[in-house]
């Protein structure tokens, strides 16, 4: 995927993460590969437990015991972050060149520190600015993320901010050191829709003005289209389909992607019934041998007992399925029409 293209800023190769729990070895990630080019935005989409947050944590070096990266590689501009020298370099990268926005703005800020103190701490540590310079830069950053009266706000505590404002502060913190890659882990899940739209717009603006690469992690396909060029759909610890956002939405190949798109409610949909993907994802403690989606897949066959290989799609994406591009889901029965 990466050859003949500019060096990706981030490349994840066949990454496996395991968690050694009391119940046994949980395979959190089972061979995840993707790459992000400079200035590119990519979405990692999946249900809870699909491994999307674990992927982000692995990139940020936040996998703690009992978890460990068992195989695969994470490359930053072609350099591995997992070798001994790489780990040293990674410590400097993380928080500076790669930064992260967490899901819950209510709990990710220290309630005993002012907003200003958060910003000054980051700027002094990573950028080596003096106290005064860091403060001035902090004011500019709050202004950049659309917080009014930034000077006064610097002296306030997180509880004086609303949810959307706190998420803006989190974004200001994340872009403080002018990162090249921003990982946003469900940045809008805890927010109201109107505020969500504003935060997504802010991310899109920053991406344009700073040339950021963004990895957006979400379970909601709805917010992907507005921000991201590429999409990777995760299921049970691996990527089942990846490609350009437009083509994935227009011609979803994998039955799971098709199901996800159809279960996303749409405003122009007059049907009284939503399409659902019945069942639940498999346990990663004993993942199935074959395709992980087969127990919920409407078009599963005997072939699916064996693990499907990743293959390229005509539109330039990849899909991991034995029978891609088959329309997997029947048209839902419309009760309204029946009556």
């Amino acid at each position: 995927m990466a050859n003949a293209q500019p060096t990706p800023i981030l490349e994840v190769r066949d990454l496996c993460v395991e968690f050694d729990t009391m119940a046994g070895l949980v395979q959190g990630l089972r061979g995840v590969s993707f790459s992000v080019l400079p200035g590119e935005t990519m979405a990692l989409v999946g249900e809870s437990g699909s491994g999307k947050s674990v992927t982000a944590q692995a990139i940020m070096g936040l996998i703690g015991l009992p978890g460990r990266i068992s195989s695969g590689d994470i490359l930053w501009k072609g350099q591995s972050l997992l070798t001994r020298e790489g780990q040293k370099a990674a410590g400097k990268l993380r928080g500076k060149s790669v930064s992260m926005v967490f899901q819950d703005p209510m709990t990710s800020l220290n309630p005993l520190m002012t907003i200003g103190a958060h910003l000054v701490e980051v700027l002094r540590r990573h950028m080596g600015l003096s106290k005064d310079k860091a403060f001035a830069r902090g004011v500019d950053l709050l202004d950049a993320v659309g917080i009014t009266e930034p000077k006064r706000r610097m002296g306030q505590y997180p509880h004086e901010f609303s949810g959307g404002m706190r998420q803006r502060v989190m974004i200001a913190l994340a872009i403080a050191c002018e990162p090249e890659l921003l990982i946003a882990d469900e940045p809008t899940t805890a927010l109201d829709v109107t505020i969500q739209a504003q935060v997504l717009d802010l991310l899109a603006d920053l991406q344009k003005s700073m040339g950021l690469s963004i990895v957006l992690i979400t379970h909601d396909l709805g917010i992907v289209a507005g921000l991201c060029e590429k999409v990777a759909v995760m299921y049970a610890g691996s990527i089942v389909e990846a490609g350009a956002a437009e083509t994935v939405f227009a011609h979803a190949e994998h039955p799971y992607t098709q199901g996800l798109i159809r279960s996303t409610p749409r405003l122009d949909d007059r049907r009284a019934r939503l399409v659902s993907i019945d069942g639940a994802p498999p346990s990663l403690l004993h993942p199935p041998k074959g395709c992980a989606f087969q127990s919920r897949c409407p078009v599963a066959s005997r072939q699916c007992d064996e693990k499907p290989a990743r293959q390229a799609t005509p539109e330039g994406g990849t899909v991991t399925c034995w029978t891609p591009s088959v329309a997997a889901w029947a048209e839902p029965v419309d009760r309204q029409a029946e009556v």
């Binding site: 109107t194 997504l200 709805g222 289209a225 507005g226 227009a250 749409r266 405003l267």
Partner: peptide
Amino acid sequence: KVLLSAVPEPDPALRRNGDCAPEAHRP
């Protein structure tokens, strides 16, 4: 109308152009 326009549209082909964020809207 603000609430309606704030719901993200998943299909890039149907996405409204740029006007989706209710800029002036305050909590």
